[in-house]
C-alpha cells in the first residue's frame, strides 16, 4: 500500500508543481496518472522515489515514511522501486549487459561495483531479465545501437534487476510509435499481473489508459482533479475531460490522443 498525503512541491524558481496531492495505491494495482505536459506527473513520480525532494507532505509505503528516509535507508527503499523513463535513460556508450547489471547496484558491495565486478548470479539474473524482454541476443551490443523500443525494454530489464515491488514509469511510451507502445505496456502489464508488481505509470494516450489501467488519477496544474477506475475513464464525459485538460482541450473521438 502506497499512501501519498498532502504532497506539495515548489521548485526554487517558485513554480508550484504539485499542490496538496493525496491518494492511495493498493498493492498490485496498475495505476495511470494522466494530465497535460507540465501538470506535475513527472514530479509526482520522482517524489515517490525521492529523485525530487517534496516540499511538504508525506509518502508512506507499507508503513515506512519514504519522505523521512535518509542515506542508506533511502537507498534500500529505492532499490525496491524500479523506474523507467520516457527517454529510456540508458548509458548509451555502455553495453546492454552493463546497463542491465547497473540495476543491481543497490544490492551489491559498492567497492566491488567500482571495478565493474558483479557476482555470477547477477550475470545470470541479467541474462534472464534480458530473455524475459526478448533481448538475450543483444547483451553485448552497445545500448545506442538498439532501436527505441529495444532500449525501453532494456530499461525494463534494468528495473527488473532490482526485484522491485513497485515500478514507476514516466511516460514510458511517449517516444515510441503506437505498436511499440502496446508491446512495452504489455510487458509492464505482465509484470503487474504475473509478478504482482505495483505499477504507477503516466500516459498520454486515452486508449492506452483505457486498455491497461486499473486505477486512474488526473492532475491539472499540480492539483488532483480526477480519481477513478478503468470504468470511469471509459464513461468519462466531455465536461470531466475538460476538467483535467482545460477548456481549450477537445476530445477527438474515442480512443484518441489526449493532451
Amino acid at each position: 500500500m502506497l499512501k501519498v498525503e498532502n504532497l506539495t512541491k515548489v521548485y526554487e524558481d517558485g513554480t508550484v508543481a504539485l499542490r496538496n496531492v493525496s491518494f492511495e495505491v493498493a498493492d498490485g494495482e496498475f495505476m495511470v496518472v494522466i494530465g497535460l505536459s507540465g501538470s506535475g506527473k513527472s514530479t509526482l513520480l520522482r517524489c515517490i522515489n525521492r529523485l525530487i525532494e517534496p516540499t511538504e507532505g508525506r509518502i508512506i509505503w507499507n508503513g515506512v515514511d519514504i519522505t523521512a528516509a535518509k542515506g542508506e535507508e533511502l537507498r534500500k527503499i529505492r532499490r525496491q522501486i524500479g523506474m523507467i523513463f520516457q527517454q529510456f535513460n540508458l548509458v548509451e556508450r555502455s553495453s546492454v549487459l552493463t546497463n542491465v547489471l547497473s540495476g543491481r547496484l543497490g544490492y551489491i558491495n559498492p567497492l566491488w561495483s567500482l571495478i565493474n565486478y558483479f557476482p555470477r548470479e547477477d550475470h545470470e539474473r541479467a541474462l534472464a531479465a534480458l530473455k524475459r524482454v526478448g533481448l538475450e541476443d543483444k547483451a553485448h551490443n552497445r545500448a545506442d545501437a538498439l532501436s527505441g523500443g529495444q532500449q525501453q525494454r532494456v530499461g525494463i530489464a534494468r528495473a527488473l534487476m532490482q526485484e522491485p515491488k513497485l515500478i514507476l514509469a514516466d511516460e514510458p511510451v511517449a517516444s515510441l510509435d503506437p505498436v511499440l507502445a502496446h508491446s512495452i505496456l504489455g510487458q509492464l502489464e505482465q509484470l503487474n499481473k504475473e509478478d504482482g508488481i505495483t505499477v504507477i505509470c503516466s500516459l498520454h494516450y486515452l486508449d492506452l489508459v483505457q486498455r491497461y489501467s486499473t486505477h486512474v488519477i488526473g492532475l491539472r496544474e499540480g492539483r488532483l482533479v480526477f480519481e477513478g477506475d478503468n470504468e470511469d475513464i471509459r464513461q468519462m464525459t466531455d465536461e470531466r475531460f475538460k476538467e483535467i485538460y482545460g477548456e481549450e482541450a477537445e476530445r477527438i473521438g474515442t480512443g484518441s490522443i489526449m493532451g
Partner: peptide
C-alpha cells in the same frame, strides 16, 4: 553529459560514487 542516466542510476539505490562510476564516467 546527459542527466538521464544519472537519474536512472540514482533510482536504482546506487551510492553517489556508484552514480559517478556508472552514469558519469562512461559518458
Amino acid at each position: 553529459i546527459q542527466p538521464g542516466p544519472i537519474e536512472a542510476i540514482s533510482a536504482t539505490g546506487a551510492t553517489r560514487l556508484q552514480v559517478i562510476v556508472y552514469a558519469i564516467v562512461p559518458q
